[in-house]
């Protein structure tokens, strides 16, 4: 931490009225940080505790019966719930496929775009547009494009000599279609991160490598890749966590069908809590999901921490 350099404390210290300054400093710190802290306490930390509490109850939405304490039976039920297991599995499949493809494509494309050829910068900027579009709209338009009867994806497919494909209603295809949609939205972002990382690589390292007589592939594996490792990890974790929580595409495109093949964990949780509507059971799922996300986010935090230290 660069605390000593950036902190006023050292500045106030030698003065005679240091007591007064220290008090002002403490008050200022408190005033600056407290509001944000309170908001996050109330809307992040407290809900986690509350979720734990809810998950230990039979707690239905909009039923006359009041919640009853249930011990760990919601968790016990989760353990035997085949649909829950399926949803975790589907989520994993989705994350591995979507994020995997995005990483590979994004990585490769970053090299394609990493050039000073004229016009490339403009193209690169255009590719960024999908990243921040409302996911519901993304789901809507791809749902339309994947339609079996008049969808344009099917039309391309037929033009290329295929027969119409029920993209969203046939087992594995449905999940792949959602993966494709996610890939469309997020590959550009991944690509951009890698691009930025490439641009930031110090030129002298390559010169040194070349002077040492390394071949092209040696440079890639021994120099470029290790230098990109932090960027790879960061984008990997961000994408994995975001993919884990996304349910808009499923909501718009398949509602979890066919036969649960696209029923990702967030969708199952959401329908359990607000359609079944079993809040206690949904809360138990939420707690497990939070545990998983915490592990992933800790990885991210570690990564950032190590960068801060080396910076």
């Amino acid at each position: 931490m660069e605390a000593s350099r950036t902190d006023y404390f050292s500045l106030g210290e030698p003065k005679p009225d240091s007591m007064k300054l220290a008090v002002e400093r403490r008050r200022a710190t408190w005033l600056l940080i407290a509001p944000a802290f309170v908001v996050l306490l109330g809307l992040n930390l407290f809900p986690i505790v509350y979720a734990l509490y809810i998950s230990c109850h039979y707690w239905m939405l909009a039923r006359p019966q009041p919640p009853r304490f249930a011990g760990l039976s919601n968790y016990q039920e989760l353990f035997f719930d085949a649909r829950f297991r399926n949803s975790v599995l589907v989520s994993l499949k989705f994350i591995v496929l979507a994020v995997g493809i995005e990483m590979l494509l994004g990585f490769g494309l970053a090299f394609v775009f990493n050039t000073r050829l004229r016009g490339m910068a403009t193209l690169r900027k255009l590719t960024l547009l999908p990243s921040l579009v409302m996911p519901l709209v993304v789901g809507l338009v791809w749902f339309y494009m994947f339609n079996e009867n008049f969808g344009i994806v099917n039309w391309f497919w037929v033009v290329l000599g295929g027969t119409r494909v029920p993209f969203l209603t046939q087992g594995a295809l449905a999940l792949l279609s959602i993966v494709a949609t996610d890939v469309w939205q997020w590959t550009p972002f991944v690509m951009l991160v890698f691009f930025a990382a490439l641009q930031a690589l110090p030129e002298y390292v390559y010169e040194a490598a070349r002077i040492d007589g390394l071949s092209g592939s040696q440079i890639f594996f021994r120099v470029t890749l290790p230098l990109l490792r932090p960027a790879i990890l960061i984008v990997l974790i961000i994408r994995a966590v975001d993919a884990l929580r996304s349910l808009e595409l499923v909501f718009m495109m398949t509602k979890g069908g066919p036969a649960g093949d696209t029923e990702v964990l967030p969708w199952y949780l959401y329908t359990t809590g607000f359609m079944s509507p079993d809040l206690g059971y949904a809360a138990a799922m939420a707690v497990l999901m939070l545990a998983l996300v915490t592990i992933l986010s800790q990885l991210f935090v570690r990564q950032l921490e190590s960068r801060e230290v080396t910076r």
Binding site: I48, A51, I54, G273, L279, M289, L290, V293, F300
Partner: peptide, 13 residues
């Protein structure tokens, strides 16, 4: 780390 909080896990509480 609150950046990673999935809304769906917080929606019930």
């Amino acid at each position: 780390s609150t950046r990673f909080a999935p809304p769906v896990a917080f929606i019930v509480p």
